[in-house]
Simulated scan of single mutants.
Amino acid sequence: MDLLNTIDKRTFRRHGEPHVAGEHLTSPQALADWLTTAHLPTSHGSRLDPGDLAAAIALREALRAALDGDSAALAGYPVRLVPGPPDEGLRLAAGTGRPWLDEIVETVAASVARGDWKRVKLCAAPDCRWAFHDTSRNGRGRWCEMGVCGNRHKTRAYRERRQQHTV
Rank of each mutant, 00 (worst) to 15 (best):
S43K: 12
G84F: 11
R137D: 12
G69W: 01
P50E: 12
R64L: 09
A94V: 01
F132P: 09
T42Q: 13
T42P: 07
A157V: 15
G147C: 07
L67K: 06
R142Y: 07
R156C: 02
R60W: 04
R98H: 08
L90E: 15
A72W: 01
W130H: 14
G115S: 06
S43F: 09
I104A: 06
V148G: 05
G45Q: 09
R91I: 10
W100M: 10
R137F: 07
A125I: 00
I104F: 11
S43G: 06
R60I: 01
G69H: 04
G51D: 13
D127L: 06
G141E: 04
N151C: 08
R60M: 05
R98D: 03
L92C: 06
G51T: 06
T155R: 10
G76C: 07
D127W: 10
K118H: 08
Y158P: 01
G89I: 00
D116L: 12
L59T: 00
I57E: 12
G45V: 10
A62W: 04
R129Q: 11
G147L: 10
N138C: 05
W100Y: 11
R64P: 05
G51P: 00
D70S: 13
L81M: 14
R91F: 06
D70P: 11
A62C: 13
T155E: 10
G141Q: 02
R159F: 14
A110I: 02
H153K: 11
A55F: 08
A56T: 04
R47Y: 03
F132I: 02
G95N: 12
E106A: 09
L59D: 02
H153F: 14
G147S: 14
G115A: 08
A73K: 01
A73T: 02
A110F: 02
R140M: 10
I104H: 02
S111G: 15
V79S: 00
T107K: 05
R98N: 03
A124P: 05
R98Q: 12
A124W: 09
G115V: 07
R140P: 04
T96E: 05
L48H: 02
V148F: 13
N138T: 14
H44I: 04
K121S: 06
R60C: 07
R142M: 12
S136P: 09
G76M: 01
A109W: 00
A93C: 08
L63M: 15
T135Q: 14
S46G: 05
V112I: 15
A72T: 15
L67D: 06
M146K: 02
V120M: 08
L67A: 09
W130F: 14
Y158H: 14
C149N: 02
E103K: 15
E106W: 05
H133T: 13
